[in-house]
Design a binder for these strands. Structure first.
Lengths: 96, 96
DNA sequence: CTCTCATATCGGACATATCCGATATATAGA
DNA sequence: TCTATATATCGGATATGTCCGATATGAGAG
């Protein structure tokens, strides 16, 4: 777990929002026509108003920090929070 | 407490190092000729190899995020960890 | 007031981050 | 194959971050 990468990933309000949305997919992504158990597909995040390419880059940053996991199913890529990594990061902040 | 400001402040390895050093002043700043109870004076941080102006800017970033407190005594400015703010930030990460 | 020392701020160079539209890649289906 | 859809990557514009040396500010000593 690379502290620097994680903290830089969190140092952007939208990326934190994305993580927050992923805590309650049924609340924030009810419009998705795939079952939410698979995760939330990338396109769903374009609601934030940014372009598709920007959204993709933000998701890549979160994935690069291991804060989310990705799973490709067909033409879609589904994102889920990586609760283990998030918990590990949180506990690593004990010695901040 | 502004999450964004705090996370951006932490998103630099040197600033995290500075906070870490301040956890054990007697261990890392034994060369200081002022009593460490007052805090660690800014000049002590130039050991990191950066210029005086860069060090000052990093300390200002930490202070701006309320992660450290400052206290001017004479010509010196002493820095201490703001344990309350740090704890508040840590606990706020519960809902990350 | 002047000199000195500690710290802060300024201006500019350079690196990184953020955003977009355009294009590439991957997969599915006709 | 050819086409359509979802996502990723590229190239470029602009913003922010980081660093430095130079200069300004603040405070004590003479």
């Amino acid at each position: 777990m690379d502290h620097d990468v994680v903290l830089r990933a969190l140092a952007h309000p939208l990326r934190r929002k994305m993580l927050e949305w992923l805590k309650e997919p049924e609340r924030h992504f009810s419009t998705q026509d795939h079952p939410l158990e698979m995760g939330v597909c990338a396109g769903q995040f374009e609601r934030c108003g940014l372009s598709q390419s920007s959204v993709s880059a933000h998701l890549a940053t979160l994935a690069g920090a291991d804060l989310v996991t990705t799973r490709r199913v067909g033409q879609w890529v589904f994102y889920k929070r990586n609760e283990d990594a998030i918990a590990a990061f949180r506990s690593s902040l004990s010695d901040l």
